[in-house]
Computed example of a mutant assay.
Amino acid sequence: MTNTYGSDVLAGKVAFVAGGTRGMNLEIARRYAQQGAKVAVLSRNQERVDAAVAELKEIGGEVLGFSADVRDYDAIDVATRATAEQLGPIDLVVAGQAGNFYAPANGMSANGFKAVIDIDLLGTFNVFRAAYDVINKPGASMIAITAPEAVRPLNFQAHVCAAKAGVNMLIKVLALEWGPEGIRINGISPGPIEGSWGMDNVATPTQEMKDRVTEAMPLRRWGTNTDIADSALFLSSDAASYVTGTILDTDGGAVISIPGTDKADPDDVRVKGRGHKVE
């Protein structure tokens, strides 16, 4: 854990992290707990919820876990209200859920396309809208995990590009609408993250591809889940009290530097046909 801000930066705060049971979102939940926040995590998989709750309780503080699908608004509403009732009004909200698979547009089903739109875009709206009714006003901070595909077209990612572009615009519109109430809305756009669930289970890049990407990046390294958690801590802290409606590219410069978005080699990634994997 880095110690840029000192200790207990988030003491007394209540955080709700959707998708917070693995990868970068679990690391965000860890960071929040380490900095003194009470934390609730949500995921569709009850076993992962139980494991995350057990781990976070070892860090200390109050922890809750909910098993629900972000596409189900009523279920998210129940989870956010239960969090506020048991831990107090929510101060920090992270919509980190994501769905992805690689497939050419003519090789995916309409249901496959819709699944990613619903998880990423509709899910972000559901998490933010449900939390809105039980957050501290003023003072709440909301973060959506977006992706470079929101602004950079990429082969085999039509569904993700469309979903994340929508997430980026949703962030900006909500920042306009809810800013007068003292609510900040921002996004984090991760670059290539070593060991992330998406990189290990969706993209599965070859070593040659990883080397090419690394060489093209200004900082010459892949990111870590810790890098993303540090960005979330900044946006959630008083240090970012005048930051809203922005997308923080935590990507080592990848979005401005990696060439070849107009080309793709199916051998570089595991390209799905009509099947899809969502999470």
Rank of each mutant, 00 (worst) to 15 (best):
S67R: 15
S67G: 15
A68Y: 06
A68R: 07
A68H: 12
D69L: 10
D69K: 11
D69A: 12
V70I: 13
R71G: 09
R71C: 13
R71T: 12
R71M: 02
D72S: 03
D72W: 08
D72P: 10
D72F: 15
Y73W: 09
Y73F: 15
D74W: 03
D74C: 00
D74L: 09
D74Y: 11
D74K: 05
A75Q: 01
I76N: 08
I76F: 03
I76D: 09
I76A: 06
I76C: 04
D77V: 00
D77Y: 07
V78S: 07
V78A: 11
V78R: 15
A79Y: 06
A79S: 13
T80N: 02
T80G: 08
R81K: 15
A82V: 10
A82I: 05
A82F: 03
A82W: 06
A82C: 06
T83H: 07
T83V: 13
T83M: 12
T83A: 14
A84E: 13
A84S: 14
A84G: 15
A84N: 07
E85A: 09
E85W: 01
E85S: 08
E85V: 08
Q86M: 03
Q86P: 01
Q86E: 10
Q86A: 13
L87H: 04
L87Q: 11
L87E: 07
G88I: 02
G88M: 07
G88H: 14
P89K: 15
P89A: 15
P89E: 14
P89L: 13
I90L: 03
I90C: 02
I90G: 01
D91S: 11
D91Q: 12
L92D: 12
L92N: 08
V93T: 01
V94Y: 07
A95R: 05
A95G: 13
G96Q: 00
G96L: 11
G96D: 02
G96F: 03
G96S: 04
G96I: 00
Q97F: 02
Q97E: 03
Q97G: 05
A98V: 09
A98D: 00
N100P: 03
F101Y: 05
F101V: 03
F101H: 10
Y102F: 10
Y102N: 15
Y102L: 11
A103R: 15
A103T: 08
A103N: 14
A103G: 11
P104I: 03
N106A: 04
N106V: 00
N106K: 10
G107M: 05
G107N: 08
M108G: 04
M108F: 02
S109K: 06
S109Q: 07
A110D: 11
A110S: 14
A110W: 02
A110E: 08
N111C: 00
N111K: 14
G112K: 11
G112V: 13
G112L: 05
G112S: 10
G112Q: 14
F113C: 03
F113P: 04
F113L: 09
K114C: 05
K114F: 08
K114G: 00
K114L: 13
A115H: 00
A115R: 13
A115K: 04
A115M: 05
V116P: 01
V116W: 00
I117F: 05
I117L: 07
D118T: 01
D118Q: 14
D118I: 11
D118W: 08
I119F: 00
I119E: 04
I119N: 03
D120F: 14
D120C: 12
D120W: 01
D120H: 07
D120L: 04
D120S: 06
